[in-house]
Nucleic acid binder design. Structure first.
Lengths: 146, 146
DNA sequence: CTGTATCCTCTCTGATACTG
DNA sequence: CAGTATCAGAGAGGATACAG
């Protein structure tokens, strides 16, 4: 068995999976950064809706700079999650879409994003509660220091 | 209807959800950064396994500094995803666990991480293919320039 | 033990300008 | 249209020291 590309799994024996992300120097970390980073997430979720051309995608994901979008897409293409279709016309036309694997990852991400959006009110409530309590603590600490 | 905390949804009319993440100045972006960032993801997935004390969690998530773990946990606590249980003993003992909402988010993240780990071989293969082709292109470009 | 505070580095990011 | 190149700033992230 020639494992030229050793995953860093097979070292622990966890429940099922998700074992090696915790290992410091694991390749899955790097991929996760690409996928779960701010722009990676948004790009993949956007592409879940269908193919996009560069500038269309840029408009869809508001706030991303040309540079970061380009960079993100390159990383995702390298990871085999995004397909880049170049039509050698003038003007050039490039379409980005998800590969089958990209679809699966995108689906997971979309589930996450949907959940976060759904629970946004709850989260904001929690934040306000937290901030209020923090202020309380600060106040009482100041009072006690007299 | 007093919407003191307006979500930036309700502007588009998408399929179902995941509408406002795409808006530039949306609060869901911020939360997503906390949740989906490198340390946020790892912390939440780790806590999926059960409660952890600070240093235990630090050991579990290899490579995280005290500062970043502390910072991450604070953000997640503020978002209402993580519960911080302080026992006023000596030495102090603090346990971190997921709130019900945290469990749900953690589950989604774990699904994502598991998928990435499962497909790690495929991704690595894609990367090698990509790198090989890139090198080809670079070579032929150099050759053509003579 | 569980953090916070500080300093310092270095990457990530974005604005701008330019190429194919 | 679809990017790449370059530069400067902001902020992430880490090492260390110290507090409760």
């Amino acid at each position: 068995m020639d494992r030229t590309a050793p995953t860093c799994a097979a070292e622990t024996e966890m429940d099922e999976l998700a074992a090696d992300v915790f290992a410091g120097a694991c390749p899955s970390r790097e991929i996760l950064d690409n996928v779960a980073g701010r722009w990676g997430t948004l790009a993949l979720v956007a592409l879940t809706e269908g193919a996009y051309r560069f500038n269309a995608l840029r408009r869809r994901v508001q706030g991303v700079s040309e540079k970061m979008l380009s960079q993100t897409l390159q990383a995702l293409e390298r990871d085999g999650l995004v397909h880049r279709d170049v039509q050698a016309t003038i003007p050039p036309r490039v379409e980005y879409s998800l590969t089958p694997l990209g679809e699966r990852v995108g689906a997971k991400l979309r589930a996450l994003v949907d959940l976060v959006e759904e629970e946004l009110p709850a989260v904001r409530a929690a934040q306000e509660r937290y901030d209020r309590e923090k202020r309380q603590v600060a106040v009482s600490a100041t009072a006690a220091r007299t």
